[in-house]
Design a protein around this nucleic acid. Sequence first.
DNA 1: GTATTTGTTGCTAGT
DNA 2: CACTAGCAACAAATA
Length: 617
Amino acid sequence: MAKTRVIYWFRTDLRLHDSPALKAALDLNPAAFWPIFTWDPHYVYRARGGLNRWQFLLDCQNDLSKSMSKLNPKLKLFVLREAPQSLFPKLFKAWEVTHLVFEKDTDSYGRERDQVVMEAAKKAGVVVIVKSGRTLWDSDEVVKKNGGEPTMSMAALRAAGGKVGKIPRLIPSPQRLPDPGEMPVDFEQDQPDPAPDLNASRRTEKDTGYKSIAGPSGDFAIETMEELGFPSATTPHRGGESIALERLDKIIQDTKYTATFEKPNTSPAQFDPPATSFLSPFLHFGALSVREFYWRVQDVVDAYGKGASSPPTSLTGQLLFRDMYFAAQAARGAVFHQTANNPSCRFIPWHLPSKTDPSTGIVTGEYHVDSDTAEAWFQRWKHGVTGFPWIDALMRQLKQDGWIHHLGRHSVACFLTRGGCYVDWERGAEVFEEWLLDHEPACNAGNWQWLSCTAFFAQFFRCYSPVAFGRKWDKEGALIRKYVPELKDLDAKYIYEPWKAPLPDLKKAGVRIKGDGLSDKEDRTYPKPMFDFNERRQICLDAMKKAYDVGLHGADKQVLDGSWKELFPDSDTSEVRGEHDTDDEDGGKKRGRESHAGEKRAKPKNTIAAAFKKQKK
DNA sequence: GTATTTGTTGCTAGT
DNA sequence: CACTAGCAACAAATA
């Protein structure tokens, strides 16, 4: 039998423990074994990612690399800087590869990319082995068992998951890793097109990541922030499998915490340490196996007996929600991330709706500014200067640290959409996509749909108050004092509503309530609240009720051809815009989602189609 | 089929 | 501090 020469392709599974795919690779008993990572231009240029997440990715790569070197000093994580689509055909030949092994990807770009690579492997006579390991159950199997439909409820997910089978148990960790073979790269490097570079605004230096396939020293080194032209990250949170396993160990040792965990009883105001596990960023990069997390918790719960919490509020319940969103995304594909053409997403005539590419039906990454007021509100929300300290603290924590508690996400998401600004959930999802360390496309889109009451959840009359909700958890305003230092000396009585504080109190605290926080920001000032919340809450409630009565969904004809507008006769005056908003300069023309009459056709910016000029089916 | 209950986590004003 | 009713009222699951 010919000797097996195996490439193990790490992607979003940056770990050695409990990896079904890695086990499959090692079971081949390779004569040559290359653990590689492809530095993919799609992520480098076409995916939004804040500095904190880039840093976290590098942390995970470096930790994994070190762990492999410990098992075999001849090994490390070999990074090759080229698009996998063009790289692999050359690699198969140059390295005389017999097998390619990787963990199944679940996102739309990942699936398209893997299809291309698998075709190339077939052509080259390379055997491809793919194993599911990113979710508790293979999402495609869950969808099949759910009648081909997206899993839109916990009940549906659990029923379908049960039919797929038992969640796989822990796989023994590798004790040794085989030697790599020779690694010639004496072939031409396909240079990526750096435009458009969605990360350009973050670079302070030129990106030099693609100078050569094997990196600046020709040793397949992991890229660095400097090479990518990025300044330092601001987050205190660090990535890597070692940290993830330590953290998990610590949680599991606390049997009471693990067995009785109930998400709604954990505080969104607690930050040091967070009230929840803080393992989601590690799950995102695959530095922790979700199945290992599940079973180690479940074993504690089973042993604990009476008094243990149960899904959906328990720790394992959180993981089930993750699988629910993954399976819903698997069923819907790319439109899961948008309203247009998404049959399970309710249509609400939000402000700042996305532009859609008529040829693909996919959003372009640009949006209509139908209201200057809404745009100003959105910018103030994004940058944490709404004048509501609870909201601002959370948004600044998100930007600075890359993580906020789940209930904090609820609070700011409700505020931006159905409970305040009436701005499209897709705008908020984009900001989270950029700033969250644990940004998981399926969970992000799903949770934004949930909070905006466009799918998964519908009780829009349950509205988070930017004052009361925070105060319930944090009377003294510790979170605000940390992330909104302008207010750190203000009396607790006014910390959630500084505009109500008497002048002497403000003076004592050394702060003035002034301006909008964006323009001409003066020292020792904090902005006035950008609207009367109770007034906005009522306007939004009425508008939501109206939209629910109309009952349109994202794939309905009226939504796609723009005729939905006839069903919302007052949509650009009273109930949607509110009394502050009198601008009507475009007469609502720009608000049609598909009928771009008189408009230049927007170029797709953030789509696979644009990146690789491939036709979507 | 209809009616009732349930659903990860609202707010206020009460006991 | 834990719990409840009332607020107005959605959609899916269950009886």
